[in-house]
Design a binder for these strands. Sequence first.
DNA 1: TCCCAAATCTAAATCGTTATAGATCGCTAC
DNA 2: GTAGCGATCTATAACGATTTAGATTTGGGA
Lengths: 333, 333
Amino acid sequence: MPDSDKPRPTLRTIAELSGLAVPTVSRALNDAPDIGVATKEKVRAIASQIGYVPNRAGLRLRTGKTNVISLVLCSDHEVTDHTGQLVSSIADALRDTRYHLIVTPYFPGEDPMKPVRYILETGSADALILNRIEVEDPRVAYLLRRQFPFATYGRTKWREQHPYFDFDNVAFGRIAAQELVRSGRRRIAMLTPPLTQNYAQDMLKGAREAIAQTEAHFEAIPGSSSDESGEDIKEHIRDFLLRRTDIDGIIAPSSTAAIFASVGAEGAGRVLGQDLDIFAKEAVPFLQHFRHAIKVVREDVQNAGSFLAKAAIRAIEAPNKAPSQDIISPKQV
Amino acid sequence: MPDSDKPRPTLRTIAELSGLAVPTVSRALNDAPDIGVATKEKVRAIASQIGYVPNRAGLRLRTGKTNVISLVLCSDHEVTDHTGQLVSSIADALRDTRYHLIVTPYFPGEDPMKPVRYILETGSADALILNRIEVEDPRVAYLLRRQFPFATYGRTKWREQHPYFDFDNVAFGRIAAQELVRSGRRRIAMLTPPLTQNYAQDMLKGAREAIAQTEAHFEAIPGSSSDESGEDIKEHIRDFLLRRTDIDGIIAPSSTAAIFASVGAEGAGRVLGQDLDIFAKEAVPFLQHFRHAIKVVREDVQNAGSFLAKAAIRAIEAPNKAPSQDIISPKQV
DNA sequence: TCCCAAATCTAAATCGTTATAGATCGCTAC
DNA sequence: GTAGCGATCTATAACGATTTAGATTTGGGA
């Protein structure tokens, strides 16, 4: 197989080969109405024969379209491969489209608006995908105001107006509470994500509603969030359980939270499945190998990624259609 | 804060503001020798005042440089956030450069050459970063032949010729074997990555050399690799240990391998730390929470990512300098 | 026979950047 | 006095694509 050092074919190559003008070739490939069927056939044949692929720079310069979708990610302390799954599934969903995925990270201490503003100001993407969505997420407000295409992994208070994919965290909270109560737990605490995040509120809501139907008691663990580093979670939970010997059930919103809540609980002398049950959701099936006693539902991130990719494309290409939205239920394991 | 819907400044904006010609502005910003100092000052002042950022499409079209570095990733079955760390650390290292990170995935069944060929043929990046490097990796051969900039996470047989970052897997194999022997283990087996991968060979080499100094016995577990899904690893290890009741030590090359090797061993009735020890390396500090008895060294992926990012840039910008190379030692925990 | 419309194609301009060659200026040197 | 030179800047073209307006051909109707 030769290394084919000949220059890449352009519209001009096709034009010369076919004896047509460059714009004609362009319009033929774009299936414009004013080009004859025979011409289109011929152009397409040549194009595929010489392996023509449009030059992204030329396209981008002329049209302003980057054909890029940017995933804005907060670098976190997660143990399990939640993020990797999201990245791969989006990139995979994009592979047979004209879009490329670029990853724009920001760090926990930083202003989440910064990467978003940068991308809009420099025009470096056609759409964004965001996660860690807050109820009144300023990024979403900004993007809505600018009418810039995006899709969120999570909902905001403006949920009707934008594409999103969300896990049904109300259902998760409800199921978690119900299951813990069913196993005889009566004093249940939740390790929540930061309360500004929408899914924290949803989980709380679901759990509270479920608990209200029972004799049990529910609370959010104060002064602590599942966003902290593993070690911090561990210490918080340990200290909390040492103070609160009455707590017999914990709800954790992620694998990482569940892992370090378990370790913290063990540090406080509890035995999982006996003194205390932990109910968690996980993106990667694994927690029951970690501690068999942990109760688990599954959140399918692959699914989320491919939905978000398609939703973002739709937001770009059909901005006037209703935003793609989906909510997926917890899968009981 | 206004939404600044005015069009982005270009070289032409600066040219009009300064009364200079567009190419002069361009050359001034690029610090060309034939532009007067005063002019450069003036141009730079205007540029920074109006927040000029070069248009990537214009640059790319004109120069052929994409200012993109592409990370070619195999979507795998990992449990821990190895990949996420790699992605974030590369993107982070790139954030104050002109380069963007784009992620190009491929899947285990697919031809690994495909994404690489695509990127070169369409000119969609200035450099590649590859992982899962084989001893005679065809992608590396191809890129060397084409003289295309890249950096690898792992070494090949052509290691002198290209930038790489590698974990010292020979040392890992040695340390793992030594530590297992020191804890009294005498029949040690390694769950290897696919044997075509360079680091599998390195780990084997280190372990074999260390074992040769002792009375112990060593082998690679046949017909199985750490690349398989967790469930497959679990079953393989369980079956292996049921057949081979003499085995009392296992070396695992990753968190995922260690997790499912543990579970498999437990399925075969072994008690970790008593009947059997497991020695593993991990990118995310976590295995000792999983099973306290697992012995562990740490592989710092963050470090790898930022090194690879810089190495890739250097490969682009100083192709004639010696390739950046580094090997990092296992960190004993 | 002539003209207009429809169908199909071409020419020119444009997006933002840089490379190449050429222009202008003041000064020195002969 | 002027050729020559260095220093500094400008004009033009080009990268590959699309858009707009205009050109050409063909055929139908009067």
